[in-house]
Design a binder for these strands. Structure first.
Lengths: 337, 337
DNA sequence: TTGTAGGCGTTATCAG
DNA sequence: CTGATAACGCCTACAA
């Protein structure tokens, strides 16, 4: 165990060593212009000597800004959110902000609990995933009076700001790619989460594309399963055992689609001849497998970067920032469809 | 923009509504035994009515615990760390702790900067990746007097506690698997990071296995590259163009190894006939590809869980906790070697 | 240009 | 069992 928690040096300690008042230390360290350069040097030297670290909790208590940005994601292990976190960090850390992260596990009630907790740290900004939240979540965040960004979807009215793209349109266009290839027997594989507006919109987009083309969707071909490779593998195993088989699969995640294709290769199912496949996200894996995966490119990291910039602009006092930011998507046509 | 930041209800507001003193609210809400059940009910009802949320900044200021655990990882986008974060969250969130996360980008100086910043939030515990840090980092953390856990490696003396496994032994055994298969011309692919003790130990383990078997390593077959699929793909492309070719590859990451195998399949290189491959981490992808990847299983999420539990035990006042926790590894022999 | 007083929200301590 | 007081580290407002 490290030695007993000795009180960390505070401004008053720096002040004593520098022979000035604590207030002068505060000004010197925050770069206030009205401090004599000489004094400022003395203070900075003293601070370094003592290993002074600024106490953000005290500043936050005074509502001067905690330099904390709160983030709630469904799951950090999901690489698409990891990329978004990366984008956020990239931009925010330069400005001295730190992220506090909570996992909702795709539950809106857990999300509400987390929002409550995280607000207790006085964050300067709040980032959520998706547009559907409990009434209490919306109200807590509205009243908090800090910039709030909902990510990964756009459409309904955001609490404050939204950064994402239309999951509905993207799924619709990805499905239309399959239909354009002449496929009529469509299957779907998407996430399990009922509390998840992205997944819901993707399934809705899939159904809309089918309806537009006059195709009937067999409900037993609509699969909801975790977004894991194993789900795709399982799906391929089921596929070879089916009597009536679909001729196309739209997976609402590249991970599921890739697992499906990899297992098809093993089982001798030919993609796209026996079944065409389209994914979602444009993960690096989709490009590495054979056949390469057709998918929807989504600017995962960009969502984080744009979100961070919006928060920074808001904190800098900028007004009249549009509430919704569409980062777009792009259909990537490769060999699997 | 949400409405003007109205002051969030504080204990004093709850106290007023409940008709008691703020101190009583504090006790009631923290489950102090010396509060009459009736009083406690009144207080809790008042707190709920006002939507009171506990202000951690004030508690942190009093050094009563910020309920914050600080974490520095090289990169959240790397799935192995994402799993560890997941394990940490899993255990810590149940106890009401929140994670603050910083990315060092594999730089020890950036890590030091982050440690300084994160300490400014008065965390109740600190989690680092790896065992090598700047002198200042070690000293800051020692003096902070909070539990500190270094993860993903063991060996040298930790700052406080360490949770991981011997990267050296794991790499050595993975390489020996290749040697046992009769391969003598060994190539290596590992991370670029010079500041990275895990990568260094893996390379050292690889070299030690070769030396033990009396094999000479060609330095131009020792590749350092980012831990991405694309690195493995690049490596496979180089492989087909080589005049003298290695007969085995030890990749210090399943991602690189998988990229290599996937591209080999595309280029007609037979694995393991033309080249045997071993990875590291036991990512789900290794099992999904054909041939399946031999690798080192590492309990990624378990590292997070064990780390969290050690911190909790320390915070609960437990003494004499061993400093080093070896979570072990397991060689997984599959078709690629 | 520098210093002083007071308070942010919570809780340890001691008094009732 | 409950309440008053003081203090944690910093910064706004005002004074010198």
């Amino acid at each position: 165990m490290p030695c007993k928690r000795a009180r960390a040096p505070a401004m008053r300690d720096v002040a004593r060593l520098a022979g000035v008042a604590p207030m002068t230390v505060s000004r010197a360290l925050s770069g206030h212009p009205s401090v004599r350069l000489e004094t400022r040097d003395v203070v900075i030297r003293a601070a370094n000597k003592l290993g002074y670290v600024h106490n953000f909790m005290a500043s936050a208590l005074l509502r001067r800004g905690s330099k904390l940005i709160a983030l709630v994601v469904p799951n950090v292990s999901n690489s698409v959110f990891a990329e978004t976190i990366h984008g956020l960090e990239e931009v925010l850390s330069v400005e001295g902000y730190t992220l506090t992260i909570g996992h909702s596990g795709y539950s809106k009630d857990e999300e509400e609990r987390l929002v409550r907790t995280l607000l207790g740290y006085g964050p300067d900004g709040f980032v959520l995933t998706g547009l559907t939240h409990t009434r209490a979540t919306r109200s807590l965040l509205t009243r908090a009076g800090v910039p709030v960004v909902e990510t990964w979807n756009i459409g309904t009215k955001p609490i404050d700001m939204a950064v994402g793209f239309s999951n509905f349109d993207a799924a619709l266009q990805a499905t239309e790619l399959l239909i354009k290839r002449g496929r009529k027997l469509l299957a779907y594989a998407g996430g399990t989460q009922t509390d998840n507006d992205r997944t819901q919109q993707r399934e809705a987009g899939f159904r809309a594309a089918a309806a537009k083309a006059g195709l009937i969707i067999r409900e037993d071909w609509v699969n909801t399963m975790p977004m894991e490779l194993s789900s795709g593998i399982e799906l391929a195993k089921r596929f070879v055992q089916m009597r009536r088989k679909p001729t196309a699969l739209f997976a609402a995640s590249d991970i599921i689609a890739s697992g499906f294709i990899l297992e098809c290769n093993r089982l001798g199912v030919r993609v796209p001849d026996d079944i065409a496949v389209t994914g979602f996200d444009d993960a690096p894996l989709g490009e590495a497998i054979e056949p390469q995966l057709s998918t929807v490119h989504v600017p995962q990291r960009e969502i984080g970067r744009v979100t961070a910039n919006l928060i920074l602009r808001r904190l800098a006092g900028e007004r009249n920032i549009p509430r919704t930011h569409d980062v777009g998507f792009r259909i990537v046509s490769r060999a699997s469809a």
